[in-house]
Amino acid sequence: MSDFSSISALLNQSGASYRIFDMGRRISKLTSDQFEKLEQGLIPYPSPYLHHAWLALMLWNPKQTDQNVVWFLKFPLDEQGFLVQAVRDDFLNRLLQNISQMLNQTSLDDSNDALKDNPFSFTPDQEKMAMFHSMANKLTNAGASHFYSGAKAYLGGEMGWKNWSGVGYQGVADLVTRLDEDNNSAYLINAIPHLPTEPLVALCTCLEHASPNHRIATALQRRLESAISDAHASSLIAALLRGLSNIHNDVMVKEAIETVLTSTHAGNAEILTAIATRCHTSLQHPDLLSLYLEKLAVSEAGQAGFSRILADLMFIPVMRILILQAFRNPQRSDALTTAVGNMFGKQFAGSV
Rank of each mutant, 00 (worst) to 15 (best):
A136N: 12
W60D: 06
S145Y: 07
I321P: 00
N98A: 07
V298W: 00
D110R: 12
A339C: 03
L296Y: 00
V201D: 05
M102W: 00
A239D: 07
I247M: 11
Q170T: 13
N104V: 11
N112Y: 03
I189C: 03
Q34H: 10
D174R: 02
Y49Q: 10
T177M: 12
S307W: 00
L175I: 07
F82Q: 07
N163H: 13
S107G: 04
L96S: 10
A151M: 08
S299F: 08
H285I: 02
A269C: 01
H209E: 04
L57C: 08
M1C: 09
Y18P: 01
S211Y: 05
L59P: 01
H194Q: 15
P119S: 12
T277N: 09
L175M: 14
S111H: 10
Q67W: 10
S290V: 07
L188I: 04
E79A: 15
Q97V: 13
V298A: 09
M314R: 12
A256R: 05
I323H: 03
L293Q: 05
P193L: 10
E294D: 13
I237T: 05
R178V: 00
G345L: 07
D117Y: 05
A151G: 04
V84K: 14
H51E: 14
L220M: 09
H265K: 09
G267A: 14
L336C: 04
S165H: 12
L207Q: 00
G350Q: 15
E181W: 02
L224W: 05
A276D: 02
I275K: 03
T177Y: 00
A53N: 09
D287N: 15
G305N: 08
G345M: 06
F120Q: 09
A16P: 00
M252L: 15
M343T: 15
L293G: 02
G156E: 04
M131C: 05
S185F: 00
L155R: 02
D117S: 13
S282A: 15
G157H: 06
N61G: 04
L195H: 02
P46R: 04
